[in-house]
Simulated scan of single mutants.
Amino acid sequence: MVKGPIGVFDSGYGGLTVLREIKSQLPGYDYVYLGDNARAPYGSRSFETIYQYTLQCVEWFFKQGCPLVILACNTASAKALRSIQQLNLPLIDPSKRVLGVIRPTSEIIGHYTYTNKVGVLGTAGTVQSLSYPIEIEKFFPSVQVFQQACPMWVPLVENNEYNSPGADYFIKKYLDQLLDQSNEIDTVLLACTHYPLLIDKIRAYLRPAISIVSQGDIVAKSLVDYLERHPEIESKCNKQGNSVFFTTDSADDFNQKATIFYGNSIQSEHLVL
């Protein structure tokens, strides 16, 4: 049997926060990470553009021998995952799998709230897709979801300004807009993999009683469960503990900024798709 690495995809750097959590729980597996930095950010792009970009990257992962690809990007999960699963996978290779970050989060977010009022912070693309309200309703019909797009947060993080005083203005602005929708929100989901880097400042502008939920640990635990339930996929995953990194933009820039998200220095390769 030919085995391959688990693929982890993001439009840029944020997925590294998910990969870090996955590796902490599944350290023995091989991983290949791709950041499509040259075409980032995805958050403001159209459904069709995001779908085409994501499909192109998924096909690249499959060419690297990946039996399983994780879309560690909320925007790609919201706007491309379902189409890829339903339209493309049956034609490309029905034995391979592509998973996202929205469903694992939606399956458990209702357990965090007592008021049944949940706030979702995400990119414009994720918010406009309505993926979270739709998915959360499937599992928790009584939970009311309030969404807020935060278009300035990703640029703040990627330009290493997330700890600057200037970041406070935009963090408070979007949180105020979210909480203005309901004063009963008691759980806030960070529905973008960049946002955990802002969590200290986010916490400063929220009431102490409000729970903040980030996705890395949730997605990692969901993957552990998935591999246990699907031995036919797990058996195709290589296990030598290796990780390699690719970016469609400058490898030097990626290596420098990746440390912010990943916690360790990495050496990436430039990829032309």
Rank of each mutant, 00 (worst) to 15 (best):
G12C: 05
I6M: 13
G216I: 02
K257R: 15
P67A: 00
P27M: 10
P27V: 05
E137K: 14
Y42T: 01
A72R: 00
H230W: 06
Y226N: 04
A124S: 12
S24C: 09
D200Y: 13
R20C: 05
N159S: 14
A76C: 08
Y31R: 07
I212F: 09
E158R: 00
V127T: 05
L16H: 09
S211L: 10
C66R: 00
Y132I: 08
I260R: 09
S11R: 01
A191M: 03
V98W: 01
V213F: 09
K96R: 15
N160E: 12
L34E: 02
V145M: 06
P67D: 00
I171D: 02
S11Q: 03
L26R: 08
N160M: 05
E59W: 03
N88R: 15
Y112S: 15
I202K: 00
I185L: 10
R203F: 10
E107S: 13
T247K: 03
Y262D: 09
I102L: 12
N160V: 08
A72F: 05
K201P: 04
V154C: 04
S83L: 10
N238E: 15
G216Y: 02
A258C: 13
S243A: 15
I185V: 12
E48Y: 11
A149F: 05
V213N: 06
F62Q: 07
F254H: 03
S214P: 02
N255A: 10
S265T: 14
I185P: 01
D252S: 15
S142E: 13
G28K: 11
W60N: 01
T187C: 12
Y132G: 06
I84S: 01
A258M: 12
N255V: 08
A258S: 14
P104G: 10
K257S: 07
S268T: 13
L197K: 02
I22G: 00
G263I: 07
G65K: 02
I233D: 06
N160D: 11
L68P: 03
V32T: 11
F245A: 02
P5Q: 12
S214D: 15
A251I: 05
P104V: 12
K23D: 06
L68Q: 00
Q177W: 04
L68W: 02
Q177G: 04
V272F: 12
A220P: 07
N264G: 02
A80N: 01
L271P: 04
D180T: 12
L87R: 11
P27W: 09
G7F: 03
A209Y: 15
E228V: 09
P133G: 10
N37K: 11
V118I: 14
S11T: 02
S250A: 11
Y33P: 05
F246K: 06
S235P: 03
S222N: 15
P5C: 12
Q148G: 08
D217C: 10
A191Y: 03
L178A: 08
K172D: 11
R45F: 05
T247Q: 01
D217P: 00
L223V: 13
H230N: 15
L175A: 02
G12V: 00
S129F: 05
F146D: 07
P196C: 09
M1R: 12
S46Q: 08
I202H: 01
A72K: 04
S83R: 15
P27H: 10
F139M: 09
